[in-house]
Amino acid sequence: MASLCAKLPTLFLLQSGVAHSNHMKQVLSLFALSLLPLSSLQAAETYEIDAVHSSVVFKIRHLNVADFYGRFNEVTGTVSFDKENPEKSSVIADVKVESVDTHNDKRNQHLKSPDFFNAKQFPTISFKSTKVEKAGDAFKVTGDFTLHGVTKSITLDFTKVGEGKGMQGEQRVGGGAEFTIKRSDYGMTFMQNGLGDEVRIILSFEGVKK
């Protein structure tokens, strides 16, 4: 692709076969225009979510007594981040329901059963962005959130925390978001008397540049 781009001006000149300077300018302008989308594509950087340094934590009210926290240990996905044109950025993330971890095997088994996540029928929770907007220092990321087989559009306020080099010199970027859902909106209606309907989800991810 790069070699083709390098040859293009020559090809243009050969094909036009003119020496007039105004014509030359037109050709060069056309060439510059044709390269615009290419330059914006190059500006988008793709990061792979690093599951080891990323967290998907949830919080739910238990018996109306206290808030309880759990987490998912396996998250995968990519973040395509365009610094120049943030609206061209995108996020795809998948969480393995089987990796739910509440520090108790029996409770993990219960959460994976048809009472809640039904992990065998719905093995992943996913998010796929449809729109990204810059909002001050943060980003508003709108996307399709699929949980328990139900897909709804949600908007997250995503804050970039920072970027830098990792232990092996790899480029890393990270940030996070928090949002609240009603589990009943996703067909998870069991034990409403024991567990709250609202679930707070706390995301923190670190991405490694591909």
Binding site: K106, Q109, H110, K112, S113, P114, D115, F190, M191
Partner: peptide
């Protein structure tokens, strides 16, 4: 119930 599903 022992199999993890109170619903079932």
């Amino acid at each position: 119930a022992f199999s993890g599903s109170l619903l079932l």
